[in-house]
Amino acid sequence: MRKSYVSIAAMITAATLLAACAGGGASSKLKVGLVTDTGGVNDKSFNQSAWTGVQKAATEFGWDAKFIESKQPTDYEKNIDQFATEKYDVIVTVGFLMGDATAAKAIQYPNIKFSIIDNAFFPTKGAKVCDDSKKDCYVDGGLKNVTSLMFQEDEVGFLAGVVAAGISKTGTVCTVAGMEIPPVVKFVTGYEAGAKWMNASAKALHVYIPSFVDPAKGKEVGNSMISQSCDVVFGAGGNTGNGGLLAAKEKSLAAIGVDVDQYNTYPEVKDALVTSATKNVDVAVYEYLKTVNAKSDKGGILTANIKNAGIGLAPFHDWDSKVSDAVKAKVKEATDGLKAGTIKTGYQP
């Protein structure tokens, strides 16, 4: 009796494996692939936002769109390669941490268009891809096929700081920040500059947590800063920052979200959520893909700022009545100042 069960199992497996080898297919549609960083495509933040932008473009232009989530940093190259060897036409990579891998693969596949969010390439001494003998990585450094989608996070951080200092009762505001990498540093710097601009005696605290996926740590850090009388918590660090928002919500204080309007993506904290410092990653990705569709893309750096509305504060939603007109007027004033260049955020790259 037992032998028959064993052999049946063996036969089924063999059949499955054999039949499986026959799979696969091809289509002539333009194919666009998105490689997320370790946060994954449902991070309620910029990976998700990038995917939204890709999907929007794909639906509108009738493209095929797929994503691959990276489990760990050593997967970046492999995942980009996965799309490249599957003959994808456009590959969007999300996040600063994928810079090296994206550059290496862009050189390997000069006929594929690459777009990276949050990372610009500059000639660097001793760099493997684009060393300082080059003038411009995109023009003569081998990265002609790469478009960097950059955001001036310090500007929107500044506006968030203005709001924070405006509604703070204790005069202390704080940031639960993710990894200390340029986009996060820009948010923090802008936020603190904005708070000081609004209220010269405001105190600003921040802690960088070397993770984007550790809400527990974010919450712990948030609570510790709240105990130092911070009453407006800015969560700037993906899921880690979300922990800071949760800490504020549990203490019935105010919180400011990041990257996307977290009122929609993280409704659990909406009571506390005053606004969000949004980077309209979806818009940036969509606009880029639109140029691809129109065949007018030419590589290089595209910067989203207050001026071109690529970044901005999310609506106040439930807090609209609680934010005074004086604060709103100040936000307006700061916005105009940033647009006109009369206000500086103090961020030095």
Binding site: T16, L17, A19, A20, C21, A22, G23, G24
Partner: peptide, 10 residues
């Protein structure tokens, strides 16, 4: 199922 296992093996 076949697509999935086919993709996996390939």
């Amino acid at each position: 199922v076949f697509d999935a296992f086919g993709g996996l093996i390939r």
